[in-house]
Design a protein around this nucleic acid. Structure first.
Lengths: 323, 323
DNA sequence: TTGTATGCGTTATCAG
DNA sequence: CTGATAACGCATACAA
C-alpha cells in the first residue's frame, strides 16, 4: 500500500507537504496540491491508521464489549453504537464475552493494546468491586451501557423502575401470583419485588433462574401447580425467555393471557409478530447508544474530569396481547 | 501507559532486552528476566499493538463486514467469527453496512486503513462486477462468507441446493402453489424455482419482494385470494419474514400448516419456540465461521497463492410444525 | 510556501 | 547474552 513518503517521491515534494495536502492544510501551492492529490487518487492511497495512532493522536477506534452479541437486544445496541461511532469518525472493535468474566477481563486488556480512544461496555458483574477497581485503574475512558456501574459513567434503562411498572401493570390486569425468570439480584426483579411487597403480595412472588428450556419447563410446571391458587403471570427477564415461557405454556395447554399472563423484556422486534403478540418492556436503545458514545467523546476531550455521569433512561411498557 | 523503553529505564537494561523478555525469547539471563517481568506486571504493561503493527508484523485484526448485525443470523455468524478469530489470536473490527453499497465501499477502505490482516465479508451484491473489481485490487485478503463471489474465496451454504430441498419437501407434503418471499435472483429461489419447473409447477410458483410488514400482508392476502386454488405454501427468504408471514396468516384467520404451509430460512433459535414451531433451513454457521477464518489465516501465510477457494456447504432442512 | 529533523513504540539486524 | 541502531508511516516543530 502506498505511503506519503512514496507519494512525495513520485511528485517531487517532501513527505510533510504530502501530509499537509492530504489533511487539507491550505498553505500549499495549488499546483502542488493537485499533483499530490492526483497521485494519491491514482494509487488509491489509504492513511495508515496505525502510524497516525502511534504518533499520538486519536486511533478513532472504540472498543465495544457486550455479553452476547447473538442476543438480539445487544445486536441492536451494537448496531446503533456502530452508527453513532461512525458519525463521530470512529470504528469499533467488537468483543462478546459470553458472560465469562475471565474473557471480559482479557478483552479489556486487548482493547487497551489497540489504544482505543474509549470503550463501551456491558459489564457482566458491574457490582463486583474487583471489576470496578480494575476498570477504575485503566487509562482509557469506559462507559457502562445498559447497566449502572458505581463510579463509572453509566447510561442505562432504569431497570428497577421498569420492574415496578411491570408489577403495577400485572396487578392492575388482575393477576395474583407472580414469577420472575432471572436472578434475584437483577434490578428488574428488585423493583418488581418492591412493588409487590408494597402491595402486600410479597408471599406471592418468586423468581426462577434460567438454566435451559427443559429446566425452565419443569420448574414452570411445578410453580403453576404449586399451592396458592390465583391467576398467574410470568415476568421474563428478556424476550428470549418470554418466548420459551410461551412455548412451555402452549405445551401445557394453558392459554395466554387468559390462564397465565406473560411479559418480556427488551421488546425485541419479533415480539409484535408472536402468537400471542408479546407484551414487553422497551428500552430506548438508540438513545442509549447516542448518549453513551457522546459521553465517551466528551471524556476523550476532558480526560480528567472527575464528575461521574449517571444517566438512567426511562423504559416504557409495550402492552400487547400476552397480558 | 507504560512502554518497553520505560521498563528498560526502570530496570537498567536496554529496550530490546525488554522486548526479548516480553516475547519469551530464551536468550536472557534469568535474573534480568525476572526483574523485567516483575516491573511489567507491576505497571500492568500492555503491548502497543499499533507500534507492533506499524513495524511490519501482523496487526492481528480482522475486518468483519456484514449487511446487518441486528439480523439474528448475522449476529450468530459474527459471534462465531469472533470466537474463531480469538482462537487465532485475532480481534475483529465490525462493520454493518445496512445494505448500503456506498457504506460497504467506505468500510472496505476503513478496514484497510487499520491494516487488518484480512477481511471476512458478507457482500451486498457479490455478483456486481464493480464490486469484484474493487475487491480484487485490494492488497488485503478477503473471503466472502454466506455468499458465493466469483474469483474470491467463498464459504457459504449452497442456497440453490437448499431451495431445491425446500421445494421437494413442500411438494412431498402436498402443497400445490408456492410463494417465495424475497428477490427473484436470490439463489434460494433459483434452486426452488428450477425444481418447481422440473415438476411442472412453474405456473404455480412466484415471488414477492419484501417491503415492510404492511406491504407483505396486503400482497400476501391478494396472492392467497388469487385464482389457481390448491393448498398454498410460503417459502420465506429468512426467519424474520417467516415470522411475519405467520403473523399475517393469523390475522387472516388461516391455520398453519393446514391451510397454508410456511417455511423459513436460517433456522434462527426462536424457530423452535414459535407457535406453530417453524420449519426452516439450517445453515452450518459454526462451520462456515471456522472455515472462513481458517481460509483467511491461510491466505495471510500464502498471499500470492492463485487458487480460489470455493466452499459450498450443505444446508439442512429442519422440519417442524409449520409445514 | 516548503523542507528538515524528530519522535511515537515496536521488532529486527548486527555488533560486541 | 546484551546493547546500539535502524526502520515502519505519520504529524509536528522549526528552519529556510
Amino acid at each position: 500500500m502506498i505511503t506519503m513518503t512514496e507519494i512525495a517521491r513520485l511528485t517531487n515534494v517532501s513527505q510533510p507537504t504530502v501530509s499537509r495536502v492530504l489533511n487539507g492544510n491550505q498553505n500549499v501551492a495549488p499546483e502542488i496540491r493537485e499533483r499530490v492529490l492526483a497521485c494519491a487518487r491514482e494509487h488509491d492511497y489509504q492513511l495508515n491508521a496505525l502510524a497516525k495512532g502511534l504518533q499520538g493522536s486519536r486511533t478513532q477506534l472504540l472498543g465495544v464489549l457486550v455479553t452476547d452479541i447473538s442476543n438480539g437486544f445487544f445486536a441492536d445496541l451494537t448496531k446503533q453504537i456502530e452508527i453513532e461511532a461512525r458519525k463521530n469518525g470512529c470504528s469499533i472493535i467488537l468483543f462478546s464475552s459470553g458472560y465469562d468474566p475471565a474473557r471480559e477481563r482479557e478483552y479489556l486488556d486487548v482493547v487497551r493494546r489497540y489504544r482505543v480512544d474509549g470503550v463501551l461496555a456491558v459489564p457482566i458483574r458491574e457490582t463486583s468491586t474487583e471489576w470496578q477497581a480494575y476498570v477504575g485503574k485503566l487509562d482509557v475512558p469506559v462507559v457502562a451501557v445498559t447497566r449502572r456501574a458505581e463510579n463509572l459513567d453509566s447510561v442505562y434503562a432504569d431497570h428497577p423502575r421498569a420492574g415496578a411498572m411491570v408489577a403495577e401493570h400485572l396487578i392492575q390486569r388482575g393477576f395474583e401470583r407472580f414469577l420472575f425468570i432471572g436472578k434475584e439480584d437483577d434490578g428488574k426483579y428488585v423493583g418488581f419485588h418492591q412493588t409487590m411487597v408494597a402491595g402486600g403480595l410479597a408471599g406471592r412472588t418468586g423468581n426462577l433462574v434460567y438454566q435451559g428450556y427443559m429446566q425452565l419447563k419443569a420448574a414452570l410446571r411445578d410453580w403453576l401447580r404449586g399451592s396458592g391458587g390465583g391467576r398467574a403471570a410470568v415476568f421474563a427477564g428478556n424476550d428470549i425467555y418470554a418466548l420459551q415461557v410461551l412455548a412451555a405454556l402452549r405445551e401445557f395447554g394453558f392459554s395466554v393471557p387468559e390462564d397465565v399472563g406473560v411479559i418480556g423484556f427488551d421488546d425485541t422486534s419479533m415480539g409484535r409478530y408472536l402468537n400471542p403478540r408479546l407484551s414487553s418492556v422497551s428500552q430506548p436503545i438508540e438513545r442509549m447508544a447516542r448518549e453513551a458514545v457522546s459521553r465517551l467523546m466528551h471524556r476523550m476531550e476532558a480526560p480528567d474530569e472527575q464528575a461521574v455521569w449517571d444517566m438512567p433512561l426511562e423504559a416504557s411498557l409495550v402492552i400487547r396481547e400476552s397480558t
